[in-house]
């Protein structure tokens, strides 16, 4: 899982700095963000308010999925019912064929159904599910520690600072991390 950088044999994946409380990670995150690494993230045992803004997280794309699939649900339900009543006309309750008021509950239900399920699926996808490669690097981040991890991007993009271990460690130390460790890759399920 984690080990000191000098002892390792496997390639380096990330450098992690640990903080003791939400206030420290907030100030630390400002320093880390200013260093302009491509890939860094925070790991906290509970939501820290305002951290997403400090970290510069962009707005999620999930609501657009919800809107698109929700509106598709409305139209699919309408078209489906219109087509069905048109292809197989029945007199129900003495109403004219293709009575739109009868369609509305189905339109509503399918809107909610597609919007809800697509939001859930989009959430899983945006969280990187299924992810069997990355393992938790330290159990304390679900308990009492706050961590910032600077990762090495798979393919480096231009416009960011190139990932280097020593620089990442230096940045995390300046950011006020109490403990800085390197995370190495150990293969699947190890």
């Amino acid at each position: 899982m984690t080990s000191h950088s000098s002892e390792r044999t496997a390639p380096l994946k990330a450098v992690v700095g640990f903080f003791d409380n939400p206030e420290d990670i907030m100030t630390g995150m400002k320093t880390v963000r200013a260093a302009n690494f491509e890939q860094f993230d925070a790991y906290t045992p509970f939501p820290v308010h305002g951290l997403d803004e400090v970290q510069g997280l962009k707005k999620s794309w999930i609501p657009w999925v919800t809107l698109a699939l929700g509106m598709s649900g409305t139209s699919i339900a309408f078209v489906m019912q219109y087509w069905m009543s048109h292809e197989w006309p029945h007199i129900i309750g003495g109403k004219p064929f293709n009575s739109w008021p009868a369609f509305v509950p189905i339109m509503f239900e399918l809107t909610i159904l597609l919007a809800g399920i697509s939001t859930f699926v989009a959430l899983l996808i945006s969280c990187g599910f299924p992810n069997i490669k990355k393992k938790i690097f330290d159990p304390s981040i679900t308990n009492n520690k706050f961590a910032i991890a600077i990762e090495e991007p798979v393919k480096a993009k231009s416009g960011f600072k190139l990932f280097s271990e020593s620089e990442a460690i230096q940045v995390l130390k300046t950011a006020g991390a109490k403990d800085v460790r390197a995370v190495i890759q150990e293969g699947w399920f190890s």
């Binding site: 309750g93 109403k95 008021p101 009868a102 509305v104």
Partner: peptide, 12 residues
């Protein structure tokens, strides 16, 4: 509003 309308419309 729609529920009120639809119940009346359906029951006729």
């Amino acid at each position: 509003g729609f529920s009120q309308f639809m119940l009346i419309w359906y029951a006729n």
